[in-house]
Design a protein around this nucleic acid. Structure first.
Lengths: 131, 131
DNA sequence: TTTTTGTTGATAATGAAATATCAATACCCA
DNA sequence: TGGGTATTGATATTTCATTATCAACAAAAA
């Protein structure tokens, strides 16, 4: 049972590779469906499951919302969550995040992640600047 | 319909105020039930909903797991997620998190949050040090 | 082409968190 | 202390994300 190269997989992969931010399955489906009307949501779920298994994409989770996925790029980056539209954007990562001065003993710190909050350009423009 | 001071609310509030890490409703229920056997999970959900509404506690979300809640303390702190047991711990926040050098134009950065990853003392001790 | 069989799309099913329902209970004020 | 009524506990229901099912379809090989 060798894998087949289908039009839907091609489109789904292209969309997620081209995206500049992590997408939910729904967002990915909506975008891919523009190129391929009739695309089933189940197909997107299957594609995402497989790509995640193969490490082509990585899962990203944030408050209340469904899991998002983005291409597994090597470059380090952080996320920016818009308080208003709740979309998640990729932004350049911070220079460096220092470890806490005091660390609970016995704990091993192996990595960190930074999330910035604020208003995205669209929302800020609409006067929803604060919070 | 004035609010009443019930034993269950007292216990639930005490537990979450005393906790040194964000708790899921299940964790909170388990802990409170030790003091008050028979405590219903629905009561915990109701208490949490109300406390969150009144800003006594804040919601904290992380990958795959249900929403966690913790006392809304003023002091700034970060979270530490153990790769193994998945528990979330409070740790002292980093000195300072610099903004990305390049920021998408129009975006307003209003805050940030840091999450550290690694092994908690318990898991590290059990030889599950790496990852 | 024809055949084989992996893949798709529609949808039912599942799983889990959170909310709604309601009779029984227990606060708390008169 | 008695009773009106907010709250509780058990559980049904809802809500959604995700997975399973399966007939129809379409890659890829012959």
């Amino acid at each position: 049972m060798r894998a087949r190269t289908t039009r839907q997989l091609e489109v789904i992969r292209t969309v997620i590779q081209a995206a500049d931010r992590p997408l939910t399955v729904a967002e990915l489906h909506a975008e891919a469906a523009r190129e391929l009307p009739g695309l089933g949501i189940a197909t997107v779920y299957r594609a995402v499951r497989d790509m995640a298994r193969d490490r082509m994409i990585v899962a990203v989770n944030y408050p209340g919302q469904p899991t998002r996925y983005e291409a597994a790029l090597a470059r380090h980056h952080a996320h920016f969550i818009c308080h208003h539209c709740k979309r998640v954007f990729d932004v350049e990562g911070p220079e460096e995040v220092p470890l806490p001065r005091r660390r609970p003993k016995g704990f091993k710190f192996t990595g960190n992640e930074v999330v910035y909050y604020g208003s995205c350009a669209d929302c800020a423009r609409m006067g929803r600047g604060k919070r």
